[in-house]
Nucleic acid binder design. Structure first.
Lengths: 220, 220
DNA sequence: ACAATTCGGTTGTTAAAACAACAGAAAGGG
DNA sequence: CCCTTTCTGTTGTTTTAACAACCGAATTGT
């Protein structure tokens, strides 16, 4: 039980709420803890999205199935992470993805209607929770928009420039470290790792950038 | 004045709030109306995002400038549309884009802190507003995620299949109309229009799909 | 009805990226 | 310390999509 609270305190949804207050909040929201076995479905495609989920132990996978039945794992959510929050908050009619436990673990399910509606006994931290959720979804929104800006570019070079430009502007400096290794950056930009390496090398030899490992500098 | 309210009533942020209540809400939020001339900056890069904007008349452009000073118009927002809501809700330190009037017009600016904090006189519809904003941001979130799923696919054919699969699943039928013409679909999927047409034709001749104009059927 | 414009499909050429395979450097483990 | 594994860059080949140019059909406006 204590373990849960120390985890929840770090969970972005509960930022700014003390351990004691989290406890009363969970009561107020009638949050349900659910123990899950590896492979167990937590939500299935077509379910009405009524709950925001938080992983307490283990990790869960978000799975999509296309028209022809091909399955893809969209994301893996680890302890502390949220899932299904966007679908719940969007009041989507049905869930377009499935969520299942990738390992034995425990999840916390919060009724999103209770979360989004100010509760009758108007608990103080409820508003904070809503703001936190708003922030989480908005931050993700911005991140998704940025990624789209990069990968809508046609060439590898343009994608790289777009990404490095964003990093430089965010850092406020022409020198910065990126949070990816080559393979991860390639995946993020949706290009081949070797093509990425090639492009980076050429840009360096052309004097546009210099880099070492994940530390980059824009020279022009 | 009346014109504004009829527009605001249709604005997704005020869904479920009557005209009278919108009026008192705007007071409660101390919303500011601002008349803008064509070309006028509404927000500039680096500003602290404090306001959610609503276009009342005319339209505004969201502009991005990269490290080298290249400018891109990211979106155009028309009357009734929201802007800067994600940055405000995300509590971003600075605005990474500029917003300027593309034509003479009028915008409504709402202090996002007032919007996100339950007001002291606890007006009844404030909570509704927050729910609406949450829904707007979440819906966009889902849309962005879907787009990314499509355009991370390598080939034109895979992107098309991914998109059509999504349409079919959303519609709950193998037959559906899409909200794009060819050029728009090509732009959405980040491919060449001619390549898209070519791929669609081949898929039709292979018996995978059939289509006429914007009406598609998945056959397999 | 006719001209002008938009829209969708076709084709050949060209440019670019994916792919595959390899090599050297760095990191990690026993 | 050596062996193994991971990470990164390099190169040549193949596949693919962008590009450009064109054509016919449909649409619109006068």
């Amino acid at each position: 039980m204590n373990k849960d609270f120390s985890l929840l305190k770090k969970c972005p949804l509960f930022i700014g709420v003390s351990e004691d207050d989290i406890k009363s909040l969970l009561d107020c929201l009638s949050a349900k803890e659910r123990v899950v076995k590896k492979g167990e479905m937590i939500f299935s495609v077509g379910d009405r999205p009524e709950y925001v989920g938080i992983v307490l132990e283990g990790n869960v996978h978000i799975m999509q199935e296309d028209y022809w039945g091909n399955r893809t794992i969209l994301t893996s959510v680890r302890a502390g992470g949220l899932f299904a929050e966007a679908f719940s908050a969007a009041e989507a009619a049905t869930l377009p993805v499935s969520v299942f436990a990738q390992s034995d673990g425990k999840v916390l399910l919060i009724d999103c209607r209770k979360l989004l509606t100010t509760c009758s006994n108007s608990c103080v931290f409820h508003a904070r929770l809503v703001r936190n959720l708003m922030k989480i979804v908005s931050v993700k929104n911005i991140a998704l928009t940025q990624k789209i800006e990069h990968i809508t570019k046609k060439s590898v070079r343009e994608r790289v420039m777009s990404y490095l430009s964003e990093c430089a502007l965010a850092e406020g400096s022409n020198s910065f470290a990126i949070p990816f290794n080559r393979q991860e950056l390639a995946d993020y930009l949706s290009v081949e790792r070797s093509a990425l390496s090639n492009t980076l090398s050429k840009m360096q030899s052309e004097g546009i950038i210099s880099f070492e490992k994940n530390k980059f500098t824009i020279l022009t």
